[in-house]
Amino acid sequence: MRQIFLDTETTGLEPSQGHRIVEIACVEMVNRSLTGNHLHLYLNPDRDSDPEALRIHGLTTEFLSGHPRFPEITDQIIDYVKGAEVIIHNAPFDKKFLNAELTRAGKPLFEDLCDTITDSLLHARELHPGKRNSLDALCERYGISNAHRTLHGALLDSELLAEVWLAMTRGQDALLMDFDASDVQNGRTARVEKFDTSGLKVVAASAEEMAAHETYLDVLDKASGEPCVWRKA
C-alpha cells in the first residue's frame, strides 16, 4: 500500500482571492514504512504573501522569485501522486488550492489524479472528539517531538503527519499479513495468511457501552454536519 503525506504552504487563505501555493511537500510511505522518496518544491507565486501567512511560513517574495511556477512542475506532482492514497491534515484547504493551481495549468482535478484522499483531521476528530486535533496537539498527545518546528514548513509538517498517522493507526500493525522485505523492495503484493476465527470470544456491549456509543455518534454527526456512516446503514 502506497501512501503519500502531503502539505502545502500558501500566500493566504483563499485561492478565489488570487492566493497561490508557495511550497508543496510529499512524504512517501509503503506498507507503513517511510521510503525516503520525498517530493519537496518551492514555488514562485508571482505575488506577495499576506502578512499573517508570511509569519507562519517565513517564505519571502524575494526567496520564492528564484523558484519555478506551478505549471512548470505539474507533471512532476501528477507522476508522484498517481495511484496513491494521499493523506492531508485538513484536506479541504490544501485540495482547494491544488485544484485551483491544476485548473489554471489545464490539468485534471487533484482527486482525479490519486487513488483516494484521506483527511487525517477528520480521523483524529473521530478518535478524540471534543479535543484539540491540530498537528501540534496530536504531536503532543502521541509523544512526537516537534521542538524543531519554529515555523510551518511543508516538508517538516508532512514528516510529522506521517509519524502522527502511524501513531493514530498503530493497531493496523497487527494485521495478519506476512510482509517480506524483498517483496516490499520489488513492489510485490504482500501475502495474506489465513486466520482461524473459531477461537475468538464474542463479547456483547453492555447498555452503558451502547449509550456511550450513541453519545459518540452524536459528536461525530455534529462535527461532520451530517449523519455518520454508522447511522446511514
Rank of each mutant, 00 (worst) to 15 (best):
L155C: 10
G66F: 09
A25K: 08
T10N: 10
Q3D: 03
K107F: 02
N99H: 07
V30F: 07
E62G: 07
L39Y: 15
A53F: 11
A100F: 13
E209H: 07
G18A: 09
I144H: 00
E140W: 01
T35M: 11
P129C: 02
I4L: 14
G106D: 01
Y142H: 13
F195W: 14
R170A: 12
L220T: 03
D157P: 08
A105I: 03
G18C: 12
I77G: 02
A84G: 03
S134W: 02
T150S: 04
L155Y: 08
L6N: 06
Y216G: 02
R20G: 04
I144W: 01
S65Y: 02
S145W: 00
A147G: 05
K222I: 12
C228S: 12
F195S: 06
L64G: 06
E159G: 02
D178C: 10
R20M: 13
L156T: 05
A174N: 09
T116H: 09
L175Y: 05
R47P: 04
E140P: 01
K82T: 06
F179I: 14
N146D: 10
T215F: 01
D7H: 04
K95Q: 13
F97Y: 11
T60M: 11
D48P: 01
R32T: 01
E140V: 09
V164I: 15
D112Y: 03
L217F: 07
E209K: 08
L41I: 15
A124S: 12
N146H: 10
T10R: 09
Y80W: 05
L13M: 13
A25G: 14
A91R: 07
L127G: 03
M29H: 02
L175T: 01
T11Y: 04
T118L: 12
F63C: 04
P68V: 05
S65W: 07
T197K: 05
L34W: 00
N44H: 12
V27W: 05
A211R: 13
P92D: 07
